[in-house]
Amino acid sequence: MATSTYLEAINQALFEEMERDESVFLLGEDIGIYGGAFKVTKGLYKAFGGDRVIDTPISESAIIGSAIGAAITGLRPVAEMQFADFITVGFNQLVANAATLYYRHNIPVPMVVRAPSGGGIRGGPFHSRNPEAWFFHQPGLKIVAPATARDAKGLLKSSIRDNNPVIYFEHKYLYRRVKEELPKEEIVVPLGKANISREGDDVTVITYGAMVFECLDAAKKLFEEHDISAQVIDLRTLQPLDMELILQSVQKTSRVVIVHEASLSGGIGAEIAARISEKAFEYLDAPVKRIASLDTPTPFSPILENEFMPNAEKIYNAILEIMKF
């Protein structure tokens, strides 16, 4: 057992997969000699050389498009977007090409786009976004958003081995804040399976990414102060969604709070709420509550950003509110 940060766990997954399979290669802006904007790929250039850890120009469309071309002819590219926000520049390649090639022609597109996402780092409007909902609306893409170091490692390995295009949202707030003991044995976490981060009976809290920790904090406080037992579900994979686990939990608790850091309207929480109302309406004792970032761009000012984002306190209050029903 050794302690690894979330960031180191990602690095380990890349290293292990590159070592395991020669068809895996990395491409992105400043990922090689520089080691990545956040140093996620540090050491990989030295280990595998410039032919497999490829520094590209600032050309997101060509980065993602080339990855697709390489993937449909037998390689397994892992492309890095320096920030998830910049994925907009390569949007067409992802939604029009990567997402539909298998449907159109039965050609698998085994590629991963790593996208450092999320706020809380005072990044302002263009370096803080959580754009997963744009891609959630496009069938053909898989979407992964780990919260723990173990999942960051295990899900990335599964993403690289998956034959579908996977967008892997790594939360940059967690990079160095999350530290865990990771086993020496290989970790592979299957896509499409949510995890129960905290057991509970009174209310289901559905979340992912950095908000998992805010939800756990809120759950702890609610239990200590009000004897309310919240079951916290970390989705881990957003597409496909683990509806089985969600519905099981809803049937048990009859109350649901959905928390995500992405903006509220049109977010993944809206889809989950709709599915719960369609499939488990009779089990509900209260309206499904969503807690999310505000429907505005991300503000830079720390005071404003703190108000903009969900936090343990907002989640705590929301749960208390729906417990009154």
Binding site: A62, G65, I72, T73
Partner: peptide, 25 residues
């Protein structure tokens, strides 16, 4: 024959990647 693509210029980066894969292997 790798398509057949419906968005103007959208296929061009794919060819770049295919060229990359040829060279890589």
């Amino acid at each position: 024959y790798l398509g057949g693509h419906g968005i103007v210029a959208g296929q061009i980066p794919l060819a770049t990647g295919v060229g990359f894969a040829i060279k890589y292997r």
